[in-house]
Structures are given as structure tokens and as C-alpha cells.
Design a binder for these strands. Structure first.
Lengths: 162, 162
DNA sequence: CATAATTATGCAACATTATGCAGTGGAGTC
DNA sequence: GACTCCACTGCATAATGTTGCATAATTATG
């Protein structure tokens, strides 16, 4: 084997990269992960990754591997969640602002995060408000339009007010 | 052995250096520490360091060793915090969006706040997401680049995608 | 069911850390 | 000064931790 002079931190760093890669990309198998790590300059083997993943508590989801805290909730479509929780949506610059009823912001934000909306950088939820950061103001407008569209899904249009 | 004429202070001085080195550098193992001490003019052996570290209550963290008080409430550099917590960073307009694993957003945001990043107006942390408001979109891009750079830490690296 | 793909693991090699033991010299005592 | 006591250290080595290789076990696919 390679026998690095500093196993401890090599291991720690490798695992940090594993967490990073798993949350970014959709890694399909350990061989994929190995390749991605190598392209980051981290040398390893499948056997070691197998052990790392076990230690990190990573589980295989339908869409690749997921870190434990991301793997918890059951998959739910975004549209039903939006219909259930979102009151309305507006845009300001690169920020999409969603309003919900009090206490409903977090569950909706969770759903927004899980659905990896294209161009969405992330969300922060308060009590009845969600800020969704978009890559650009054009993307923000597009996302808002899509979210707005979900509201009308199977409901009469006139219900969307304000 | 060498037997200095004043053991007491030799020991005390060595331990002072150990504390200093551990809080500055990221020491990866006792052999590293030994080398660093030698380059400071302190002669010792791995066995002695092993005992010193045990006496000092030093613990092995994910990022090397940490002194006991540093292990808890961390007067920690930004870069180590970024390497430990940040999964990735992106920009949308004047907003820098950082992602962490669930529950890690707040500690990283605290660190970001403590480091008075130039052009940073403030941060808001959710559960796994931080919004950092920048003075301008140019500043935002610059900050993101700096943060991204911290990920590469001590390894010579090529490029950063995304 | 057969075969391929993917993941897990026994084992040996190496790395890192801990410790039994004996030697040394400073401090205290007379 | 001579003696004793003992904290401290280095040496040698034990104990523990990590990894790659080879391959077994498991899971997916036709």
C-alpha cells in the first residue's frame, strides 16, 4: 500500500471530500466516488471507501448515496408540498421569497432543498418565510414562475391571490 | 540521555512550545511535532511527546490535534473551520451561499462573523445553509473564491470546478 | 438461474501511539 | 561531600489503528 506519513489527517481529509462530493454530485457507486476523489487529488481504493462510507453512516438512496442526515425523510414531490404550504412567491433580485403559514416554512424549505432545483443555491427558512438564493435574477424569476405554476396545479386559478 | 542541567524548565518550555505549535499549525502526528520542535531547537523523542500530550489533555481531532480548550469553544481560524464544515460555496448576485452538513451552519457562520471579512455585510445561518450578504456582486465573487480556496488547504492542487 | 456489477472483509504490511524499564541528575538531608 | 529519593527521559518494544490487495458476499440484470 501507499503508506502515507500522516494517515490520520489523510483519512480525515478524504472523508471531508467524501461528504462534499456526496452532497454535491449524485455518486452512483464506490467506483464513481473513487474517480471523483482522484480528480480532486485524493488517492484511495474501493476497499477504503467502503469502510469510510460505513463509518460515515452513508446510505444508498434511490438517487445515489446520501449522507445520513439527508437521507431521512421520505421522498415527496415538490408540487404537492408547494400546494400544501406555499401561500405566495415573489422575487427580489436574485432572491426568491416564499411565504407560508406560520410554522410551515421549514417543511417546505426541506422539500425545496431535496428537489435540486436548477439554479437554486440554497434556502433559509424562518417561521413563515423562506429565502431561496438563486444563481442570477433571471433564474430567480424562472424559479418563481415555476413555483407559482405549481400552485395552480389542480386547483382553480382564482385561489391565488395577492 | 542528554540530561539538561535544568529539567524542570526544559520540560515546561517544551510543553509551552507544544501548545504553541498545536494551536498554530496543523500537526498530524507525534513525529511531525517532534520535527517542528527540533526546528525550534527543542530536542526530544516520540515517547516523551506521547507523555506530554497525554498530560496536556490534547485530543486528536479530525483536523489534527487540538488542545482541550480549543476542542470545545473554538477560537479557530476561519480556514480550518471552512475545511471542516463547508461543503461548497456559490454566488448569486450579492449573496454568497455556503452549504454545510445539517447542523453545522451556525458554527461556521459564527466563524465567518468573527473573521471580519472585507466587504461582508453579515450572515444568516439556517440549518445547513448560510447566506452571506456582500457589499456588491464583485465582492461576493471574491469572497466565494477565497472561501473556495480554503478548501484546498495544505495540498498542492490544480483546479476547482464549479 | 446465470452472470455481471457492486460492496464487504480477512489478512498482512505499515504507521502511529503507548509503555515497561533502567539510567540520570537535581533536591533534600545529614 | 555523600547518600537517598524520585521526577523525568530515552530506548526498545508492545499495542493499536489504517490501508491495499485479493477475494468473498451480496445485489442487480437479463
Amino acid at each position: 500500500m501507499l503508506h502515507n506519513y500522516a494517515m490520520q489527517s489523510v483519512r480525515a481529509e478524504r472523508r471531508r471530500w467524501i461528504e462534499r462530493l456526496l452532497s454535491d454530485d449524485s455518486i452512483r457507486n464506490q467506483h464513481d466516488l473513487l474517480s471523483r476523489l482522484q480528480s480532486e487529488g485524493i488517492q484511495s481504493t474501493q476497499a477504503t471507501l467502503s469502510r469510510d462510507l460505513a463509518d460515515l453512516g452513508v446510505v444508498k438512496g434511490s438517487n445515489g448515496w446520501r449522507l445520513p442526515d439527508q437521507a431521512v425523510n421520505a421522498p415527496m414531490d415538490l408540487a404537492p408540498a408547494v400546494r400544501a404550504y406555499m401561500l405566495h412567491v415573489e422575487v427580489g433580485g436574485t432572491l426568491v421569497v416564499l411565504r407560508t403559514r406560520t410554522g410551515h416554512a421549514t417543511p417546505l424549505a426541506v422539500e425545496l432543498d431535496r428537489t435540486r432545483l436548477d439554479g437554486s443555491l440554497g434556502t433559509i427558512a424562518g417561521d413563515d418565510t423562506i429565502f431561496l438564493a438563486a444563481k442570477s435574477s433571471a433564474v430567480a424569476r424562472g424559479l418563481a414562475r415555476r413555483l407559482q405554476g405549481m400552485l395552480q396545479g389542480d386547483r382553480p386559478r382564482r385561489f391565488v391571490r395577492r
